[in-house]
Write a protein that binds this DNA or RNA. Structure first.
Length: 599
RNA sequence: GGAACUGUGGUGUAGCUGGUUUAACACACCGGCCUGUCAAGCCGGAGAUCGCGGGUUCGAAUCCCGUCAGUUCCGCCA
């Protein structure tokens, strides 16, 4: 290996053009490809800016030629030479720098590379486990540099926007305390306090509220958050949240700020003009029309309630569930009459898998309506259904009769499935929607108690406050979620800033007074010292970038992601630690006892 | 905790209704030839016992069970 000696990099590979013709330059980068023609060697040299062809000929410099002879893919080189217009007929229109090439006068190997487990150029087709183990090779790809430069740019635009709007970027602790509610915590043992643990934050929620009490008025942070729950394609145990909090605001203030931020972001990042305001749907409306609280509004296929038309139906498939307090809801699929019996059977099977008893279908064919249920129904009943659904010849009607929750969920999933099958989703479209009026609390069957739908610091709507003790599940929250293309980017709320209300809420979710003091005493206390009205939002930054860039996994926007079993294949974390470390922390694992028990 | 899919030289795949393959092909790798290629080309070569363990069988990459790893989904994720 040779040192780069006195050579200094003067140019970037991808930035060279005919303008540089005749210049004596020094490049540094990786060998993407070596083509040896015996008498002349071509090296494609890559750095972050791009690729350029280096020509090494013994006629120019024998030393350089001999050096190039031993060079292999992914060697790191310094190349000194002259930029030249390529000889006529040898230009490569597929390369950005295809009009020129660099004639090597001097080549120095800054570092060699072994045979690689895979080459960056092939990485797209390589097993993901291998790519994660050699993540540095996987990341040695222009696709990733683009993703991460977009991520960087997005963060920069947001920082700039928020700074100009009076927000301070502040940091909050990673070593904090475990609080009840929410996800499972990642714990960090305290050496100084044996037997006691810090928790890594699931979000900086309480700290940002306390910053408001401290009078900062406008705060933001790209906050690392940790949740020890199972992973998904769009969920990592460690992720980044764009965390924002403001004082003296209401829901509309937060929403307007965020909309304006996204307008800036999309313009700066993608050159796309978003239209404001974003549509708003109530939670109930979203559930009724789309069967989910994160509807994808890029296509129609809305759910329609037809229960009132079928209460007295002779068809028991419909009438019976309604009698038991259920509903009949359906979707009109324009052009769906072309679906084969096989497809309808598949859709029915899916509906059953999702919890429905079955799927009723009506095909509005050229020769009339077809349905297994037709002979069980009065013609005028069928006509009224068709009219209510706004269906016309060529359409397909699908119905689920069940309890409203089941019917909504099944039709919501069916709606997505149909959109996929009919290719109704325009991937170039960005469809934002605010979901509002969430219930504040919901009953958790497993734990036999009420829980906060968002978190227990969310303010109830003023007018629903009296219901907190009498009919808590009917209390609506001053909360809002932001949804993009059917993906929940995040949510926020106006917080409780009155101690009395906060205590009532803790009480409603069954937290005992002493627990409140123990776990949240600092907050309760802070609320007594002039806490301003405040609210904010937290947006999943990784998920946001994934959605904006049209990627199918969050791992692609995280440089060093975890596998589905929450391990890092690059570092092999987590891993056992030395006995001494455990002793210092007064920790003994239960593993030994367990294996003893099994043996 | 549960379900599904995947696991064959360095990489990507084929084989997988059990035995005519000494497990095939492409790329990469090694050696040779070659002064204009950019998916360079031509000739030659090395390299896998089929994730791991067990079972069925005269015989297993191929069937069965278990297990590990990766992925997707359900539960979970205030």
């Amino acid at each position: 290996m040779e040192s780069n000696g006195e050579l200094k990099r003067t140019h970037k590979c991808g930035e060279l053009s005919l303008d540089n013709t005749g210049q004596d330059i020094v490049l540094m980068g990786w060998v993407k490809k070596r083509r040896d023609h015996g008498g002349v060697i071509f090296l494609d040299l890559r750095d972050r800016s791009g690729v350029v062809q280096v020509v090494v000929s013994p006629d120019i410099n024998v030393d350089a030629f001999e050096m190039a002879d031993g060079v292999r893919a992914e060697y790191v080189l310094a190349v000194q030479g002259e930029v030249r217009k390529r000889p006529p007929g040898t230009e490569n229109p597929k390369m950005a720098t295809g009009d020129i090439e660099v004639i090597a006068h001097d080549i120095r190997v800054l570092n060699t590379a072994r045979d690689l487990p895979f080459y960056p150029g092939d990485a797209a087709g390589v097993d993901e486990a291998l790519r994660l183990r050699y993540r540095y090779l996987d990341l040695r790809r222009p696709e990733y540099w683009h993703i991460f430069s977009m991520r960087h740019k997005a963060a920069a635009i947001i920082r700039d926007f928020l700074s100009k709007n009076g927000f301070l970027e502040l940091e909050t602790p990673l070593l904090t305390r475990s609080t009840p509610e929410g996800a499972r915590d990642y714990l960090v043992p305290s050496r100084v306090h044996p037997g006691e643990f810090f928790a890594l934050p699931q979000s900086p929620q309480l700290f940002k509220q306390i910053l408001m009490i401290a009078g900062f008025e406008r705060y933001f942070q790209f906050a690392r958050c940790f949740r020890d729950e199972d992973l998904r394609a769009d969920r990592q145990p460690e992720f980044t949240q764009l965390d924002i909090e403001m004082s003296f605001v209401d829901e509309a203030d937060v929403q307007e700020l965020i909309e304006e931020m996204f307008v800036h972001l999309f313009k700066g990042l993608l050159g796309i003009e978003l239209t404001r305001p974003f549509p708003r749907l109530t939670y109930q409306g979203a559930m009724a029309r789309y069967g989910t609280d994160r509807p994808d509004l890029r296509f129609g296929l809305e759910i329609v309630d037809v229960s009132r038309l079928l209460t007295d139906s002779g068809c028991r498939v419909f009438a019976d569930p309604i009698k038991k307090g259920g509903v009949v809801r359906g979707i009109c699929v324009p052009g769906g009459a072309v679906f084969s019996r096989k497809v309808l059977d598949e859709l029915s099977a899916l509906a059953v898998e999702w919890g429905a008893r079955g799927l009723a279908w009506f095909i509005l064919g050229e020769k009339g309506i077809r349905s297994p249920l037709l002979k069980l129904m009065k013609p005028e009943e069928v006509d009224s259904l068709v009219a209510e659904m706004g269906a016309k010849t060529g359409d397909l009607l699908l119905f689920v009769a069940d309890q409203s929750k089941t019917a909504e969920e099944v039709l919501g999933l069916l709606r997505l499935e149909l959109a996929k099958r009919l290719n109704l989703i325009d991937t170039g479209v960005f469809s934002f929607v605010w979901i509002t009026d969430f219930p504040l609390l919901e009953y958790n069957e497993d734990e036999q108690r009420l829980e906060a739908v968002h978190h227990p610091f969310t303010s109830p709507k003023e007018e629903d406050l009296p219901l907190l003790e009498t009919d808590p599940e009917r209390v609506r929250a001053r909360a809002y979620d932001l949804v993009l293309n059917g993906i929940e980017l995040g949510g926020g709320s106006i917080r409780i800033h009155k101690q009395e209300v906060q205590k009532r809420l803790f009480s409603a979710i069954g937290l005992k007074e002493e627990d409140v003091q123990d776990k949240f005493g600092f907050l309760i206390e802070a609320l007594e010292y002039g806490a301003p009205p405040h609210g904010g939002i937290a947006l999943g930054f990784d998920r946001m970038m994934m959605t904006i860039l049209g990627l199918s996994t969050i791992r692609d926007v995280i440089a060093f992601p975890k596998t589905q079993s929450a391990t890092c294949l690059l570092t092999s974390a987590p891993a056992p630690v030395a006995e001494k470390q455990l002793e210092e922390l007064y920790i003994r694992t239960a593993l030994d006892e367990e294996s003893d028990g099994e043996n």
